[in-house]
Simulated scan of single mutants.
Amino acid sequence: MSSTPPNPVPSVEDAPVDALVVKENEDAWTAEELQEVLAELTEQREHSSVIITEHETELSGLMRDSGDGAGPDPADLGASTFERDHEMSVLNNERDKLLQIDRALERIAKGTYGRCENCGEPIGKLRLMAFPRATLCMTCKQREERR
């Protein structure tokens, strides 16, 4: 099992703030607003990295201990299977979240942050400030959820 590698976090000075798109009725991104988003993404990334490390260790222990005992008691087997499945689910969710965070950081560095990956329209600054990992505008996100 592998821990998450550090991802270089772009600074506000490195990010092309002027290139970031906004909706027609929104003001352009400011360095302060982008700094808030970067701080949130950095905090989320650190938190996810800790959770991933903890759950990788826990899952490793569960896998190692799965053959212990005098024989497979059905209740013990069910409990350990449930625990293992839970750990894998949490681990996969956090890994997905980490990929989303890294993708957002990459988009900030490239100046493509804020543009919907589906239709190309602006996602909206308010949406991104509430959910910095967003890659779809509300219209495309709603369409995706209906499928």
Rank of each mutant, 00 (worst) to 15 (best):
residue 51 I to M: 05
residue 129 M to S: 09
residue 84 R to C: 08
residue 44 Q to P: 03
residue 106 E to V: 02
residue 147 R to V: 08
residue 55 H to N: 12
residue 15 A to P: 02
residue 27 D to G: 13
residue 57 T to E: 15
residue 84 R to S: 14
residue 94 E to K: 10
residue 28 A to V: 13
residue 48 S to T: 05
residue 140 C to R: 06
residue 106 E to P: 07
residue 122 P to E: 04
residue 27 D to T: 13
residue 57 T to F: 14
residue 126 L to C: 00
residue 73 D to N: 07
residue 112 T to Y: 00
residue 134 A to R: 03
residue 110 K to W: 01
residue 106 E to W: 08
residue 20 L to W: 01
residue 34 L to A: 03
residue 50 V to S: 13
residue 113 Y to G: 00
residue 70 A to R: 11
residue 42 T to H: 09
residue 96 D to A: 12
residue 143 R to T: 15
residue 103 R to H: 12
residue 121 E to N: 08
residue 57 T to P: 00
residue 119 C to L: 07
residue 107 R to F: 02
residue 96 D to M: 10
residue 136 L to P: 07
residue 63 M to P: 02
residue 135 T to W: 13
residue 1 M to Q: 08
residue 135 T to L: 12
residue 86 H to D: 03
residue 105 L to P: 05
residue 6 P to S: 13
residue 49 S to I: 08
residue 92 N to W: 11
residue 32 E to Y: 04
residue 70 A to S: 15
residue 138 M to H: 01
residue 56 E to W: 07
residue 119 C to T: 07
residue 108 I to Q: 03
residue 47 H to E: 08
residue 40 E to M: 09
residue 63 M to W: 04
residue 120 G to M: 05
residue 46 E to G: 08
residue 41 L to I: 10
residue 63 M to V: 10
residue 113 Y to F: 10
residue 92 N to H: 13
residue 103 R to D: 14
residue 22 V to E: 05
residue 124 G to L: 03
residue 8 P to A: 06
residue 35 Q to N: 12
residue 50 V to A: 15
residue 74 P to H: 04
residue 126 L to T: 09
residue 56 E to L: 14
residue 106 E to Q: 11
residue 18 D to C: 01
residue 51 I to F: 11
residue 107 R to V: 03
residue 31 A to L: 05
residue 122 P to Q: 00
residue 139 T to N: 15
residue 126 L to N: 05
residue 22 V to L: 02
residue 141 K to Y: 00
residue 117 E to L: 12
residue 32 E to H: 08
residue 57 T to Y: 13
residue 1 M to N: 08
residue 25 N to F: 10
residue 124 G to T: 01
residue 72 P to V: 15
residue 40 E to T: 14
residue 20 L to V: 01
residue 91 L to Y: 04
residue 135 T to P: 09
residue 95 R to S: 07
residue 133 R to T: 15
residue 43 E to W: 09
residue 19 A to R: 13
residue 143 R to F: 12
residue 99 L to M: 14
residue 126 L to W: 00
residue 69 G to H: 10
residue 15 A to I: 07
residue 65 D to P: 06
residue 53 T to Q: 15
